[in-house]
């Protein structure tokens, strides 16, 4: 698990595979400008592997700002299927209010 210090908050990034063998990135804590670059680096590594599907497990993610959204959109633009699983209502509303419901596919909370 990678830990990115961001003031008093931190983002945990954990990479794994789900039952169908697709890559899962589990996020814990807050995804903001101070941690987005680290996540972007992880996502770029995965994109370079050319997967057809990428899953973000957002159960532990409590906050996401526009920098975080930018990373998610980058993933969505470069992987055929990107799924955001279990977003909190805060995350869900950030995505909706930014007009990205059609770009980022949010799973059920």
């Amino acid at each position: 698990m990678e830990e990115v210090e961001a003031g008093e908050a931190a983002l945990g990034i954990e990479r794994s595979s789900d039952a169908s063998g697709d890559t899962v990135i589990s996020l814990q804590g807050e995804l903001d400008i101070s941690s987005a670059d680290t996540l972007r680096a992880t996502v770029e590594e995965i994109v370079a592997e050319g997967p057809s599907r990428l899953v973000f497990e957002l159960t532990g993610l409590t906050f996401m700002d526009s920098s975080g959204i930018a990373v998610m959109v980058y993933a969505a633009n470069n992987v055929d299927t990107v799924e955001l699983l279990h977003p909190s209502s805060i995350i869900r509303r950030v995505v909706e209010a930014t007009g990205l419901s059609t770009v980022l596919r949010l799973g059920p909370s």
Binding site: V73, N77, E96, A97, T98, G99, L100, T102, V103
Partner: peptide, 9 residues
């Protein structure tokens, strides 16, 4: 309507 931001597509 809230459209996607500029730069997304």
């Amino acid at each position: 309507t809230i459209f996607p931001p500029v730069g997304i597509q």
